[in-house]
Amino acid sequence: GAPPLPPYSAGGREVTMKKGDILTLLNSTNKDWWKVEVNDRQGFVPAAYVKKLDSGTGKELVLALYDYQEK
Rank of each mutant, 00 (worst) to 15 (best):
R41D: 11
V62L: 10
V45P: 01
K18E: 06
D54L: 12
Y49M: 06
Y66K: 05
T24E: 10
K51E: 11
T57I: 11
A64T: 03
G12E: 11
A47R: 07
W34C: 02
S28N: 08
P46G: 01
P4I: 07
A47S: 14
D40P: 03
P4H: 07
R13Y: 14
F44I: 05
S28A: 15
V15A: 05
G20M: 03
T29S: 14
V45D: 01
D40R: 09
D40H: 15
L26I: 14
N30T: 04
G43I: 06
G56S: 14
P7A: 11
I22T: 05
S9Q: 12
Q42V: 14
P7E: 14
G11F: 03
G12N: 06
L61T: 10
Y68R: 02
L5Y: 07
L5C: 07
F44N: 03
A10P: 15
G43R: 03
D21T: 05
E37H: 05
D67P: 05
S55D: 13
L26W: 03
K19A: 14
G43W: 06
G56Y: 14
P6G: 02
Q69G: 14
G12P: 06
G58Q: 08
G56M: 14
D32W: 15
S28D: 15
A10W: 07
N39S: 11
N39V: 12
G11P: 15
E14G: 12
L23R: 01
W34V: 04
L63H: 04
K71Y: 15
V45H: 00
Y68L: 03
G12F: 10
P3V: 06
K71I: 10
P7D: 11
L53R: 02
T57Q: 14
D40I: 05
P7L: 07
V38W: 07
Q69I: 14
Y66H: 07
D21M: 15
A64Q: 00
L61I: 09
G56N: 13
K59R: 13
L65R: 03
G12Q: 07
K19H: 05
E70R: 08
L61R: 09
K59M: 12
E37R: 08
D54R: 08
A2N: 09
L26V: 12
D21K: 02
R13S: 11
K52C: 07
N27I: 07
E70G: 15
D21F: 04
L53I: 14
D54A: 12
T29N: 14
A47T: 03
E37S: 10
A47Y: 02
Y8D: 09
W33C: 04
T16F: 10
G1P: 14
A64D: 00
D21G: 03
D21E: 13
N27P: 03
L23E: 00
D40V: 06
T57L: 12
L53A: 03
D32R: 05
R13P: 15
G1V: 09
T24C: 08
T57K: 12
K18R: 14
L65C: 05
L25D: 00
I22L: 08
T24K: 10
